[in-house]
């Protein structure tokens, strides 16, 4: 009996003294944090994509709370959450909720329709594939199909199509531009979300060469230029280019393109 009591007393004593120690330590070493930072961090997407240039969502939240960064710096944040952040900060929510405008598209339709120059047997990374003799595709503008953009996409918005080229699912794309940074062929561009058409080719080669290499690239025939009612399409160095400022999304160019190079996302 005596043993039990002494054990209880010892443990209670220990527990009490440690409790006091911890309470003292938490007071003594308390770091002051802005409670808003935690709230903002919770409202940011939390995928740490790095598109804002910060190390992660938490560090951007600190900047936003300190008024050193704008809410719009985060391209991945949904409009509702952006409004919520603005109200956390006590700012006006006017205009904050507008939908951010752009999503990525990948401009090459080659894939397995584009002929191979040689058998590539290297690391499955586009950045390595491009260094092997400038890429194994006959077309020097073609997608190298190794899927590096798929690997770096933080939200899994890019998937490989049966044709062998990756495609962006606009609804999932948060616009972080990570894929743009890794694509050695610079095939990925940001296009306004309300525009559905894009030129699915980046080749500046002449039409005859394109027909020989893949048959689905822009041959610079100019039909889309004529078909466009708002003069949004021009031919620059054998390649059709859409001026999205003028484009009305009427999709008339899609119908006239003989090689089906103008695509809808």
């Amino acid at each position: 009996m005596k043993g039990i009591i002494s054990a209880i007393l010892t443990l209670s004593g220990l527990g009490f003294s440690f409790g006091v120690l911890l309470a003292w330590a938490s007071k003594k070493f308390h770091v002051k944090t802005d409670p808003r930072v935690e709230k903002i961090t919770g409202l940011l997407p939390g995928i740490n994509c790095g598109a804002c240039g910060e190390a992660g969502c938490a560090s951007l939240a600190e900047l936003i709370a300190a008024d050193k960064a704008d809410v719009h710096v985060c391209v991945a944040c949904s409009p509702e959450n952006r409004i919520a952040i603005a109200s956390v900060l006590g700012l006006s929510t006017e205009g904050v909720g507008r939908r951010l405008s752009q999503a990525a598209v990948i401009g090459c339709g080659g894939g397995n329709r584009c002929k191979n120059k040689f058998a590539y047997r290297g690391l499955a990374d586009c950045r390595v594939a491009v260094s092997a003799m400038g890429g194994y595709k006959e077309c020097r503008f073609a997608c190298l199909e190794q899927g590096t953009c798929i690997q770096v996409c933080p939200v899994g918005a890019i998937s490989m199509q049966p044709e062998g080229v990756p495609k962006v699912i606009s609804e999932k794309c948060i616009g972080c531009k990570k894929c743009i940074a890794v694509c050695p062929r610079r095939l990925i561009m940001m296009v306004d979300r309300d525009k559905d058409v894009y030129i699915n080719c980046h080749s500046h080669d002449k039409g005859a060469l394109i027909m020989k290499k893949c048959g689905v690239g822009c041959i610079a025939c100019g039909k889309c230029v004529k078909a466009c009612p708002s003069q949004a399409i021009t031919l620059i160095d054998n390649l059709a280019v859409i001026d999205y400022g003028k484009c009305t999304n009427c999709k008339q160019c899609v119908a006239v393109c003989p090689t089906k190079t103008i695509a809808i996302r």
Partner: peptide, 13 residues
């Protein structure tokens, strides 16, 4: 540029 294509050669680093 000659147009003949031999059996595709393997290219690795």
């Amino acid at each position: 540029m000659t147009e003949k294509q031999p059996a595709p050669l393997t290219v690795t680093s």
